[in-house]
């Protein structure tokens, strides 16, 4: 494989992972922006955050996700945006793992605020590991992005 082929492949991968991240953050942000009370309940179910912070997080986190998604589209302030995106994904994963080991069987509140009758914590965790890998991959590949 020639250098130009490698370069093209890496550029393509950089764009693909960045757009995948945009899709994830948009899909996560929009339903929660319009149902903050339900999202607050999802956060409360994790029993991690003090009560005084639950509503503030429920209000601001979806907007942070949306702002990060928009900045990823424009590839504006990329290092800061990738750092925030991956920090959020890491915190979400840590919260899920913590809930799982405390025996909580809850809705993850990741993409929807609707109540699921049979939440699958293991699936949520596997999915979040994949998202985090995607986020880290996107950050590492960013220098190959044609927009960089």
């Amino acid at each position: 494989m020639s250098n130009s082929h490698i370069h093209t492949t890496l550029a393509l991968l950089a764009q693909l992972t960045r757009w995948a991240l945009v899709t994830i953050f948009l899909a996560a942000a929009l339903p929660k922006i319009f149902a903050p009370a339900d999202f607050a309940l999802s956060i409360a179910n994790y029993k991690i955050v003090p009560h005084i912070l639950i509503n503030i997080i429920a209000l601001t986190l979806p907007w942070l996700e949306l702002v990060v998604a928009i900045l990823l589209v424009c590839r504006f302030w990329a290092p800061a945006v990738f750092f925030l995106a991956n920090t959020m994904l890491l915190i979400f994963l840590a919260a899920l793992v913590s809930a799982y080991f405390r025996g909580l069987d809850i809705d993850c509140g990741c993409f929807s605020t609707a109540v699921t009758l049979t939440p699958n914590m293991q699936w949520y965790m596997i999915r979040d590991v994949f998202f985090l890998a995607l986020g880290l991959g996107a950050a590492c590949l960013d220098k190959h992005d044609p927009l960089a």
Binding site: T60, P62, W63, L64, L66, V67, L71, L84
Partner: peptide
Amino acid sequence: ILALSVGLALVF
């Protein structure tokens, strides 16, 4: 970015 998100959230 954090300040912008908090501001947008509070206004909305």
